[in-house]
Design a binder for these strands. Sequence first.
RNA 1: GCCGACGUAGCUCAGUUGGUCAGAGCAGCUGAUUUGUAAUCAGCAGGUCGUGGGUUCGACUCCCUCCAUCGGCUCCA
Length: 644
Amino acid sequence: MIKITFPDGNVKEFESGITAYQIAESISPRLAADVLSASVDGRIYDLDRPITEDASLKLHKWDDKEGKYTFWHSSSHLMAEALEAIFPGVKFGIGPAIENGFYYDVDLGERQLVEADLKKIEEKMIELARSGEKFTRIDVTKAEAMKKYTQKGDQYKCELIRDLEDGTITFYTNGGFTDLCRGPHLRNTSVIKAVKLLSIAGAYWRGDEHNKQLTRIYGITFPKKSMLDEYLVMLEEAKKRDHRKLGKEMELFTFSSKVGMGLPLWLPKGAALRDRLEQFLRKVQKQYGYLQVITPHIGNKELYITSGHWAKYGKDSFRPITTPQEGEEYLLKPMNCPHHCEIYKSKPRSYKDLPLRYAEFGTVYRYEQSGELHGLTRVRGFTQDDAHLFCRPDQLKDEFCKVIDIVLYIFRTLKFDKFTAQVSLRHQTDHSKYIGSEENWEKAERAIQEAAAEKGLPTVVEYDEAAFYGPKLDFMVKDAIGRSWQLGTIQVDYNLPERFELEYVGADDKKHRPVMIHRAPFGSMERFVAVLLEHTGGKLPLWLAPDQVMILPVSEKYNDFAKKVCELLNNYEIRASIDDRNETIGKKIRENELKRMPFLLVVGEKEETNGSVSVRKQGGENLGEMPVEEFAKYIKGEIDKELE
RNA sequence: GCCGACGUAGCUCAGUUGGUCAGAGCAGCUGAUUUGUAAUCAGCAGGUCGUGGGUUCGACUCCCUCCAUCGGCUCCA
């Protein structure tokens, strides 16, 4: 008999060799039907794999990450089986489960896969899934494994096997398809009810561009047809929220191939929106003691040799520009920190001066590969909401807390309710690649974690994710339809103070080296606007909306009254304008609704007589007739509420 | 940069095997209408069919080059 410990602490005895599936069955048939895989002592197991020793057991269903992972991983094998049936001789790379679904990298030789083939593969997958093939696991020796794939002529699998340790190699078979795989897998394919292959893409073998490019097929599967439908609706929704589409519709920004790819042009409404965001942040930063600075768009190459960026990024960057007479080399600034360091150095600093917080909406230029550019989220020229805090080591934690406060305030105001923070620390044992003293690193790593804990941030700690110059804290937000985006970042830096020989005179009258914090709560104005658009679907909060109020005269007879209303609202600094086109009121309402106008004011004979407006809120809610002044106060009140 | 897809009017998109196929809706302009909470009517104007070459009696349609866009890969100070 063996003892099985359940997540709730319960312990039950079972015969040795029992499987997770049998245990689930013993609890309830319903559970047995739902369970997809299990964790045995923290390692994921197939349901039919015998358990022979005392262990802790956790059963995974569709709702668990592990359950989905198993489901999709098995789905990728199912797809592989279908591919082999349709395209005999296909060679396989790797086929893992990913966050949303799975993919398989395959080598189809000379054959070209097109989108139309996906349908065929889907159908084959459904057919195979229906037949309820079992997944069976066998242990094989390295030699056997090698032999099989050498015979099959699949050099990719051979390469994978070469790196594996003998005695740990397993094969999984479903139907006529056998794959090198660690597992775990579903018991059989019949639980896969809905299949959608989403796209085809190229992917280098092992992610190395010197290797052959394989065909990557992305897909997703579900245990219920209705779940697939929901997922497809979500994808449609995501398409509607695409910031590139919204940016065009709302006339916020555009691109021009003549200006250059990845170089956004902000249109008047977009520029105004961005300006409001900047003012918002400026105001908060002022309260937190930041000092606004301005630095030029270019910097002498020497500056970047000093900072080390030239050595590390120079060759992959925009080439330097040269002065015609002296031949001096200048770089378009790829970051603001070196400039800010020189501001720090502009005069001797005392410990009493610290912390010093320099903020700048600094526009930077970075060369990104052409294929990597994407709307406003990946561009070649962008403006960071940058600031550099120079402080004493003992001030680090406090400064960190304050930065977190700013980030949280921004998230709260802009209704990013779901977020997490990633703490990126050094490799747990190997510290050879990091600059800065052991003592300072420990202090900083502790400071970040304590600050995050004090502020109640939900955090995930990742080792070996720190930059060589310091640990960092990155913020991830979830948008309204559940997608994750990385926004702000806070980074500790020991490198630049060293390289720029930054100093302050301590209370002991000796020279000390300050610590630097880089931080950008938005990340960049471009990226933030993009995420905000996708989060809100274009329905921006009132205080940010490019237009807040549209006045709709019932007919041209009331244009003069509309003008008066508009002026009055403008005097209250409300962004109002008049739709005085010669159109029916119905059409004006429809079009302004489609433009997501927050408030529509209908004015006609009744309103002119009463000096009032009839208020319609975006979406159709009718707030009724009210005096113009009252509406002005109402809307100001709504804006104040948003900014509380 | 690499692989694949795609590029027709300001926008969204039709255009069959190369031969009345240069089209529609919206937007724009002109006129009529003077409108009460999601599309009033009529007319007009808009495109070297991304670019450059080639095949052909004839190319939006077939082939090649380049450019841009989209989906990925790789990278991200």
